[in-house]
């Protein structure tokens, strides 16, 4: 190997190491908020146009950002999530079929802090928007009834939501039972247990199942 090549290679490695060290140093000095908590573009219509026909990809990015944002603030026990609702609104406006954003987004928004954003009314808006665009997804009705029952303590509306969901073709048979149970035995521990057991039984997602198990343990 020529001496010039060896010298250039060594210099390249040294410059790379120095630049990495400088970037890391700069990152440490920057406030964390400056990196994570700024939403530059609020308009889904503008983002749709900027995406040049790939709004689904932009929606995926915003949903991922919502997950990361919630996860980081939840882990840091910050207790407030001011950007969570706008992030979810943008993701779902860009891709109204992104049902995962309604299901998980509602469970991020509705519980009281520090476990969630304490915005059950926003969670209801989000899920209702999802139902308007995906009326064939019975699980969204289940999510809606769940929020009304556990977070809003509005048992009549919870029963109504479960009842609406039970009418969707292919809906889980438990929805009919839940509709009757919430109407007749509102506020009872057994009803709450039934809700969480249905969640545990009907979900395949490990995070949702673990959450359901935790709540069931709490009810014992």
């Amino acid at each position: 190997m020529r001496r010039g090549s060896v010298g250039a290679g060594l210099l390249l490695a040294a410059c790379l190491a120095l630049s990495v060290a400088l970037v890391r140093r700069t990152d440490e000095q920057r406030a964390a908020t400056a990196r994570d908590e700024v939403l530059y573009l609020h308009s889904p219509a503008l983002l749709r146009r900027l995406s040049l026909g790939h709004e689904g990809l932009v929606a995926d990015l915003y949903w991922t950002r919502a997950v990361q944002y919630f996860g980081m603030r939840h882990h840091a026990r910050k207790g407030t999530f001011p950007l969570l609702d706008p992030l979810l609104e943008i993701a779902t406006a860009l891709d109204p079929k992104l049902t995962v954003a309604y299901q998980f987004g509602a469970s991020f928004l509705s519980p009281p802090p520090p476990d969630g954003a304490g915005q059950p009314e926003k969670a209801i808006e989000l899920v209702e928007f999802g139902i308007r665009h995906n009326p064939e997804k019975w699980r969204l009705f289940y999510n809606l009834g769940f929020i009304y029952y556990l977070e809003m303590k509005d048992y009549a509306r919870a029963s109504e939501a479960f009842g609406r969901g039970a009418k969707v073709p292919g809906a889980h048979p438990f929805l009919r039972v839940l509709a009757a149970q919430t109407a007749e035995h509102a506020g009872e521990v057994e009803t709450a247990r039934l809700l969480w057991e249905t969640t545990l039984e009907s979900s395949t997602d490990p995070l949702v199942r673990e959450n359901a198990r935790t709540h069931l343990r709490g009810l014992q």
């Binding site: 790939h54 990809l57 995926d60 997950v67 990361q68 992104l98 997602d205 995070l207």
Partner: peptide, 14 residues
């Protein structure tokens, strides 16, 4: 690793 429930959508969209 960093998101929930959209692996398939991301692969197709991306």
């Amino acid at each position: 690793q960093v998101s929930i429930g959209i692996e398939r959508q991301v692969v197709i969209n991306l």
